[in-house]
């Protein structure tokens, strides 16, 4: 009996340590989440402003069809997948990668039909292990990534589209809905759809102005559109980061709760065992005394 009491005690202590760690991780994730949300917030004006200008230019240049605005027959598809570097964040990566696999499976017959860009170590390892065609990767991003960190891969992805190495580009990341819910989503980034630009016409209408363009509307569009696509990739990354920390916070919060529950259960068990030991001891003493009686 004494043996099992010591066992239980040891297990309680080990759960307590685990709980301490998960609790700390939860708190760290919560503060990083706040930072990531702020960052996502502050990146918004850039994309919005650019969007305004593009809508304006696109409206002023009817008849000019920039390749990034026009759908063409799809022979090859590019995917950009945003995952995390580190684990311990619940279903964050696995949900996204499952979605990716399902999409690939559904849409393509062979591996020649698509290529994948990947951000994050988890995604990279997963895809490499399965021998999927990864043509670009970024890992080891900081928790608050700079634009320069993803500029290279974003530029590459956009460039590949421009060079017609693939004919459409999808981006997969975890959409941040609120700190409790993150949802893996797939969005078509290129070609930039007409609807996307048209949608906001109502909101942008107040800002309408007839611009002069230097050197020409077409040239402005040529420079602006790739930038816009890059900015979109960057904001998806920031949103992915926010989701990552939210997922991590939830996972760690659950782990902490589970540990607490286990500790309670074990404490009860420990007390019972102690009680049983005492009862037995008394019974032995009483038994001994009455035998001598």
């Amino acid at each position: 009996m004494g043996q099992s009491m010591r066992d239980i005690k040891r297990r309680i202590r080990s759960f307590e340590k685990t709980r301490q760690i998960t609790k700390a991780m939860k708190m760290v994730a919560a503060s990083k989440l706040r930072k990531a949300q702020e960052q996502a917030e502050s990146s918004r004006p850039y994309a919005e402003k650019m969007h305004d200008v593009i809508v304006n230019v696109a409206r002023g240049t009817k008849g000019y069809n920039h390749p990034m605005l026009v759908s063409r027959p799809v022979r090859k598809t590019g995917y950009l997948v945003i995952t995390s570097d580190r684990g311990l964040c619940g279903g964050y990566n696995s949900n996204l990668l499952r979605k990716l696999q399902a999409t690939l499976h559904e849409r393509h017959q062979s591996q020649d039909e698509y290529v994948i860009f990947v951000i994050g170590r988890k995604g990279r390892d997963f895809l490499k292990r399965r021998g999927l065609p990864v043509i670009g990767e970024v890992t080891g991003l900081s928790d608050s990534p700079k634009f320069a960190d993803v500029h290279e891969i974003a530029k590459q992805a956009v460039q590949f589209y421009a060079d017609e190495k693939f004919d459409e580009l999808f981006i997969l990341y975890n959409e941040f809905i609120n700190p409790i819910i993150q949802r893996p989503v797939e969005k078509r980034l290129l070609p930039l759809t007409g609807e996307e630009l048209r949608d906001s016409e109502g909101t942008a209408a107040g800002a309408t102005a007839v611009y002069e363009y230097e050197p020409s509307p077409e040239a402005v569009l040529d420079v602006l559109l790739p930038r816009y696509a890059e900015a979109l990739i960057y904001s998806a990354l920031l949103e992915g980061k926010a989701s990552e920390f939210a997922a991590k916070m939830n996972a760690m919060s659950n782990a902490t709760d589970n540990a607490t529950e286990l500790i309670e259960k074990l404490t009860l068990e420990f007390n019972r065992a102690r009680q049983a030991a005492i009862t037995q001891e008394i019974a032995e003493i009483v038994g001994g005394a009455s035998a001598q009686g």
């Binding site: 007839v210 611009y211 002069e212 363009y213 230097e214 050197p215 040239a219 402005v220 420079v223």
Partner: peptide
Amino acid sequence: GEIGILPRHIPLVSP
């Protein structure tokens, strides 16, 4: 080329 922009400039977009 070089431009100087003062208030009430005509709307313009340029790299």
